[in-house]
Amino acid sequence: MANNNDNTPQKEELVSVKAEQDATASPSESSNKTQQKKASGNGLLWFVVFVLFVLILGMGGAGYWYYMQQQSASKSAAAAQESAISQINTIERERAEISTSLERVTETNEKLESMVAELKAQNEMLTLQSESTLEQIKNMEGRRPADWLIAEADYLVRMAGRKLWLEYDVRTAILLLVNADKRLKSLADPSVLPVRASLAEDIQTLQQLNQVSQSSVALALTGMIAQIDKLPLDTFEKPVDVNAQDNALSESTDDWQENLGKVWRSLVDDFLTVKSLEGPIEPVMTLEAQFLVKEQLRLQLMHAQTAALQGDAGLYNQSLQYAQTLLIEKFDIDASQVSGFVNALQNLLETDVSRPIPSELVSQKPLERLLDSRVKQVFGQGASAL
């Protein structure tokens, strides 16, 4: 650094010397020198321009190379980014599938845990039921086996209801109720007295019903239907002889002449009789008409039979009255068979076939409650089949 500072005054002196020499030189020389300086300055300028152009070309090439490198790098980066995105999407799908599988496995696990819990609860319940059953079996030794008679009484009451409402058999229903009361009576238990009172009420109600056997009435009508074909029909009505003479003899002696004429006419009439009859003559019934009349009578009796079995007193009486009208109008009422038939119909008309059957039995519900408290609580659901 010290040497450079020392040489600086010397250079300044040299420059000043050259300037003085140039000032003392001739004008031609100065012009030549000026042209030389211009030529050297132009060359230097062209050299600088060339160097700048080369530098610009180098910088452009370097820039283009750098641009191409950047484009290649960006393409590679884009391809790498797309590949990374594809891999990420693939990983996301796999993760979603794995998550779904995990959820399914979790749900299955939860279901299995729920099933296991239910099975445990059922196992505990069965254990409790078995323990309760064992306890009931132990306690059954102190129970009275006669409690089964309550179930028998309930069965008999149910059968009485079926006989009453399905078959209209009042007598059998009464017998079944009486047997049910006997079962409860054999228990010798005061707690069943209210049920026995209900049974007695049902028995009394049924006994107050009409005791006429509907089946007996139906059988009687069946026998009458079988006799219809044997009944004679009134097929001809003989007109009255208005010109008929009275041949009765008078008891007075003054009428001896009339009596003699009457005796003579009666003797003559035994050999030959000629009479003149006047009046409407009804024709004989055809076979079709006779068949229809008998079928009408048979149909009415069958209607009465059905009504008797159903306890329909209105239809029963109506059918018998129409049948009685047919007998009087179409059959020979003077015949003993027809008159007996009419009398039998009149007897059936006087028979009351109505039977107001009660809609329910009073003893059924109390007996069911007694059965629940005395039998079903001990033996569980096994007694529900009774």
Rank of each mutant, 00 (worst) to 15 (best):
W264G: 10
N247Q: 10
P190Y: 08
R265V: 09
A173G: 02
W256F: 12
L260I: 09
I203V: 15
S252H: 08
R196A: 02
P283H: 13
V192M: 03
D189N: 13
L175S: 12
L187P: 00
M224K: 01
D202H: 02
P190R: 11
R183N: 11
T273H: 12
I281C: 11
K262S: 02
L249Q: 06
L187R: 05
L199M: 11
L233E: 03
D269W: 12
V195A: 06
T253L: 15
Q204A: 13
D255Q: 08
P190N: 09
D229Y: 06
Q211L: 13
P232G: 02
E282W: 06
K275W: 07
V195P: 03
A180C: 05
D189W: 09
K182T: 07
Y168P: 01
L187A: 03
Y168C: 04
V242E: 14
P283M: 10
Q227A: 12
S266G: 07
E237I: 14
S213R: 04
D269C: 08
D229H: 05
S252V: 14
L175F: 11
D169S: 06
A197Q: 12
Q257W: 12
L187Q: 06
N243I: 07
A220M: 14
Q214K: 08
T222Q: 14
L233H: 01
E258C: 06
Y168W: 10
D254I: 15
Q211A: 15
L176C: 03
A226Q: 08
D270G: 13
Q204H: 15
V242F: 09
K182I: 11
L184Q: 02
A226D: 13
S276Q: 14
D169H: 02
L206G: 00
D169R: 04
A244D: 08
A218C: 04
L267I: 12
L206N: 04
A220T: 07
D241T: 04
Q204K: 15
A173M: 00
E237N: 13
W264Q: 10
L260H: 05
S186P: 05
N259K: 03
L177T: 00
Q227K: 14
D269R: 14
S198F: 04
L267E: 11
D202R: 03
L233V: 05
D234I: 07
D241A: 08
T205D: 07
N210D: 00
L175R: 06
V242R: 07
F236I: 12
Q257N: 05
N243F: 10
L166S: 05
S266C: 01
L249K: 04
L206Y: 05
Q207Y: 10
A173L: 04
N247A: 08
A218I: 00
N179T: 11
T205Y: 06
V268M: 15
D269Q: 13
L184K: 02
L277D: 00
E282Q: 15
Q211I: 09
R196E: 06
L176H: 00
A248D: 11
V242N: 07
I225C: 01
S198A: 15
L249H: 03
S252K: 09
E237S: 09
S216P: 01
T222V: 08
P190Q: 12
L277M: 06
A180V: 01
D269P: 02
D229C: 09
A226F: 04
D189C: 11
Q214H: 07
D189P: 05
A180P: 03
